[in-house]
Amino acid sequence: MRSAVNGAARRILLGVIGRPHGVRGLVHVHSHTEEPADLTAYGDLSDAQGRRFLLRWRGAGVAEITLRVDGNEVKISDRDAAAKLTRTELFIDRDRLPPADEDEFYLADLVGLTAVDKTGAELGTVQTVHDYGAGASLEISRNGNSLVVPFTRAVVPEINLSAGRMVIDPPAEIITEGGAA
């Protein structure tokens, strides 16, 4: 998985500008937000070079782009200008995301945390957060080996985002008799 956090500035990838749509400067936008329409809810977005963009939806997955340059707004109004923005990645500062509820965590905050056991021994780094409808689970990897644990209070009793670590109490495993039959 491509890391969504870009460098020390803690910027999070929210979407990517796609191909132009029509001749009036509209573009397709690939949103990575949970609700695709929320991409425009965070206000200005910036690209890797620091240019600031304001997006307005003009159809399903199609947006109008306004570039903010030195306090001025420059609307992208023709296809050629829109085509130059294809594959531009749109970021947001992590600080601009609304605070999460109690016991709720942004995946971007969890990925990269160091996992330690109750004695303080390092288990690895959180590589991915899985959620396929049966509760979230964390994939912790170290030296090519991975450990997948459920994201529950019992298994993850302590999360310290500022220290970049979480405590894991790996559950005991019961192997079923049927095995791999």
Partner: peptide, 15 residues
């Protein structure tokens, strides 16, 4: 077959 996708503003709840 899994596609983990992008994290963006997605959240996980600790049960």
């Amino acid at each position: 077959r899994t596609f983990t996708g992008h994290t963006a503003d997605k959240k996980a709840k600790r049960n």
